[in-house]
Computed example of a mutant assay.
Amino acid sequence: MKLTAPVPGGPCWIELSTSDVQAAKTFYAALFGWRCETDPREEAGGYTMAHLGDARVAALSPVYQPGQPPAWTVSFATGDVDASVAKVTAAGGSLLVGPMDIFDQGRFAVVADPSGAVFSLWQGRAFAGADLFNDPGALGWTELVTRESEPALAFYPAVLGWTVSASETYPQWGIDGADFGGARTMDETFPPEAPPHWLPYFAVTDADATAATAQSAGGELLMQPTTIPQGPRIAVIRDPQGAVFGIHRTEA
């Protein structure tokens, strides 16, 4: 990801909805060194900020509905949530939650693309988004995992103004040419019931060591550490509560 701060259309925040916030705090502290602080206000619903030093990098919260599976959600920045929601629905996507205001922090909505991949839109006010990208323990890449990439290549540029690389095997998303993610088409290695989704990747200094730490802390490796041709070394992990995310080795 070449982006180093939230910009319109780009990824700006990453949030975990989990069945056990306390256990997630312990797991991700062991994995990334996060320091977590839970908002004490009752109306905040247990919303917890994860920090690297003083930098805010992610959030953890209880699942919103009984039976909801734990999952990471990627948020993309917009100057006008309501206008972006209108673009989503006009392009064949759907509105799931909102739009609504979050205190004085900003305005958000949860939406899905035409294939059903869920993401959030964030209109920052007092809070623009993550303070850090690409450093070890912070968001480093966002990947759309979908069964058909071609419709997505039209949807996201129309909604968020993204640029798309010319690669046929792995198209990459960007803002004014600064790439921050890609699109992976599901193959036979994915179970038939796996839905399209957004997969966040966190930057790490050593993918193999981090993968081993995840296993020892109760996580499961869905993809063993693998070096991508002309790319980084990556792994995909399921945390102890079931949320899936990736890691990738930062460039030297």
Rank of each mutant, 00 (worst) to 15 (best):
P6G: 12
P6M: 14
G9E: 03
G9Q: 01
W13V: 00
T18M: 09
D20A: 01
D20Y: 00
V21M: 00
K25V: 08
K25S: 02
F27G: 01
Y28H: 06
Y28G: 03
F32V: 06
R35H: 12
E37N: 11
T38E: 15
E43P: 06
E43Q: 15
A44R: 09
G45E: 10
T48M: 07
H51D: 11
L52H: 03
D54M: 15
D54E: 15
A55F: 00
S61Y: 13
V63R: 02
Y64G: 04
Q65V: 13
Q65P: 05
Q65Y: 11
T73R: 06
S75G: 11
F76M: 05
F76N: 01
A77T: 05
T78K: 01
G79R: 08
G79F: 05
D82K: 09
V85C: 07
V85N: 02
V85S: 02
A86W: 05
K87N: 03
T89R: 10
G93F: 03
L95M: 03
L95H: 00
V97I: 13
G98F: 00
M100L: 14
D101F: 11
D104H: 12
D104T: 15
D104N: 14
D104S: 14
F108R: 04
V110K: 03
P114V: 07
P114H: 09
V118M: 14
F119G: 01
F119W: 09
W122M: 07
Q123C: 10
F127M: 06
F127P: 01
A130Q: 05
D131C: 06
D135T: 11
D135N: 13
P136N: 14
P136R: 12
G140T: 05
W141P: 04
T142W: 03
L144T: 04
V145Y: 02
T146K: 08
R147W: 07
S149A: 11
E150D: 15
E150M: 15
E150G: 09
A152S: 15
A152H: 07
Y156A: 01
P157T: 13
W162R: 07
T163W: 00
V164K: 11
S165G: 07
E168V: 09
T169Q: 13
T169C: 04
G174I: 12
G174Q: 10
D179M: 13
D179R: 11
G182I: 14
F190S: 06
F190E: 06
P191S: 10
P191C: 10
P191K: 10
P192C: 00
P196L: 04
P196H: 02
W198V: 09
L199K: 13
P200N: 06
F202H: 02
V204Q: 01
D206E: 10
A211E: 03
A211Q: 04
A212K: 10
S216C: 08
M223D: 04
Q224F: 03
T226L: 15
T227A: 14
Q230C: 12
G231D: 14
I234D: 02
A235N: 08
I237G: 00
R238H: 07
P240A: 10
G246I: 04
R249P: 00
T250W: 05
T250G: 08
T250S: 10
E251L: 12
A252K: 15
A252I: 12
